[in-house]
Amino acid sequence: MGKMKDDVVLQVDDLSIVYHTIRGDVKATNNVSFELRKGEAMALIGESGSGKTTISLSLIRKLPKNAEVTQGQVLYQRENGEVQDILQLSNRQLREFRWQDCAMVFQGAQNAFNPVLKVSKQFEDTARAHGWSDKKAVRQRSLELLKLVRLDPERVYDAYPHELSGGMKQRTLLALSVLLSPQIVILDEPTTALDILTQRAIIDVLNDMQEKLNFSIIFISHDLSLAAEMADVVATVYAGEIIEIGPVNDMFYESLHPYTFGLLAAVPKLDHEQDVLTSIKGTPPNLINPPSGCKFHPRCRFVLDRCNVDVPALTEDLGSHLAACWNKEAVVEARKEQV
């Protein structure tokens, strides 16, 4: 397998995914590459439909049946340094990889728990599937984790899912996601369906957990303030591509891509909740026949002549982080004017 830096757990190289549909192929992920470091939290932000979920599902190979990975690799480095391409794992290896190495909290997983089994059974099921069948030990570990997510451990552990409220289920699911001490936890819009207070609580719990358990996080959100609070690294996804990626502060204070800039311009303060992504004019692109050149050009304030012909690459030519745009200077100017 390819070489990986020691401190990287996940490395995505040139990944492309299409959905086959009757109306044509939806190009939902295009040449995406990124690295996730150990203990790091990376946020994927972007409008709904931009391809965030598709990227994250491909990391545990849980894409819908009509999806096809057309190119790329997803390299995973175990704690002992062994490197595997997840896309090449056998079914058995894949089953073991899931949750043991990489857990995922799905988008809108209000019904993540089987309604006819007790929470405890579902924790035990998970443990047993990965060769851990000492129920007492599982129980002890589960109770600790439930306490960590600030629930009454005994009550929740012996309850049926319908006896828990939405926020409690979400926190229980967080506890379950780290039951097997995975290196990576993927959270796909973990707070979208919850009220603001519960969202707050979940974020606090998450920060707390990450500090104590030290796993890597891929955090998907279209809520920028949450992303800012959670993440070390932020990546902007547009039309199935990562168009800008960098450390959280660079991204928020020195963004170089007009799209990221547009997203943030509408946010007066970072901890102010507001669905800002709707504020960019125009509609998200059609992913069956995407625009030529830079896919953002039909909506871009800073569009140049070459933008609808040449595809900009992710480069570091200006500033300290990667962005894919022909006219970064204009963004920098615009920010100066704003201040």
Binding site: K62, R98, Q100, A109, Q110, N111, N114, P115, D125, H130
Partner: peptide, 25 residues
């Protein structure tokens, strides 16, 4: 249903998913 999807992501064995998660519901 979500819980079947999640059960698969949890790496449960197919036999367990078919009987206790899909079949029973």
């Amino acid at each position: 249903e979500d819980y079947v999807n999640v059960a698969e992501a949890r790496g449960l064995r197919d036999s367990r998913i078919i009987s206790a998660y899909v079949g029973r519901n």
